[in-house]
Design a protein around this nucleic acid. Structure first.
Lengths: 182, 182
DNA sequence: GTCTATAAAGCGATAGAC
DNA sequence: GTCTATCGCTTTATAGAC
């Protein structure tokens, strides 16, 4: 709920008045829950997002005995989380415009953990030397897909990108066919 | 100059006081030059950016007799424009956080023109059916590279992404060797 | 714990002198 | 064309009643 206000309006655009309206709480209640004010609210949201990705995506990528299944799960969870391109990545948005300095460590951690967990999974399913490059390119493409989908107001950009990722990460030893080559 | 203030602080964060300081002009002068206020200033900046890319990148991609040279030029100009990953894409930032509705047509136009011009160039050098997908993936990767480079505070992310693009777009029929496979 | 009232500062924008 | 002064509004944050 709190996260959605930041997602929809950005850090600067999410005024306390707006947050109060959307959460149904007065400023007194908000400052009681978050004595640090707006900065602490955003930090809590970023921590919540980080925990969600850790539990649903990163952990499996690092630990599962079936890395290919974990990668497939990553793509499916990513599609669901970002509502197939209709939802913005709050961490990416904070990195670009809003005071990156305030949340720099959390922003960097979110992306570094994703990249490193995916690198591990890729190493365990054949992509030895290319694992890091492939992981970096994947995390980066997801962010770019969200930017482009929103800029063009066309969520299908995001879906096409995920399909290409599926092919790149899993397709070469799978029965699946790349959509652009079928 | 005006563009740099928006780039560094976002639309919401670029207050008129800050703009006045950086440009060395008072509010009176600013409103004389831009009667529409802050919205008109941002529109002028977006138009200036659009014209720059049209002249330096899009036009060559569409019209040159040597599409491979135009693509190489695109990669070089892109690297230079974004200062090898140290500079943010204002259009991408506006698309994500700041009032996208105010500048939606300019934002969509920027990316659509880039994608379509690149599609034309790719069609003329062998990538027939894959040209659109490849162009979309390229534009998207550049944006993602900027997000990730800034999030991780590591400009080299952008350079590695450009190298991979060079390989994907031009490498297969060229003597160049992909850095991650050499 | 939640509310209202309010403080102090910053915002975009305007008016008018020069 | 550039400036200063100012308007009206919104912002974050606090104080204190209940």
């Amino acid at each position: 709920m709190l996260a959605e206000v930041f997602r929809a309006h950005g850090y600067a655009g999410a005024s306390l008045a707006l947050i109060g309206t959307r959460t149904g709480l007065g400023k007194g209640s908000l400052y009681h829950a978050f004595p640090g004010g707006k900065v602490e609210m955003a930090q809590a949201v970023l921590d919540e997002i980080g925990a969600w990705f850790e539990g649903r995506i990163y952990a499996s990528l690092r630990d599962t005995p079936d890395p290919r299944a974990a990668i497939r799960q990553m793509l499916a969870e990513t599609d669901g989380y970002f509502r197939s391109g209709r939802r913005v990545c709050l961490v990416g948005a904070f990195a670009l415009c809003d005071e990156r300095d305030l949340f720099g460590d959390r922003i960097a951690g979110y992306f570094a953990q994703w990249r490193d967990a995916l690198t591990q999974a890729l190493r365990r399913c054949g992509h030895d030397t290319k694992a890091f490059d492939l992981a970096e390119d994947t995390v980066l493409a997801i962010q770019g897909g969200l930017v482009l989908a929103r800029a063009l107001d066309d969520p299908e950009v995001f879906g096409r990108m995920l399909k290409r990722l599926e092919w790149t990460l899993l397709g070469e030893t799978t029965a699946r066919v790349h959509p652009s080559t079928s």
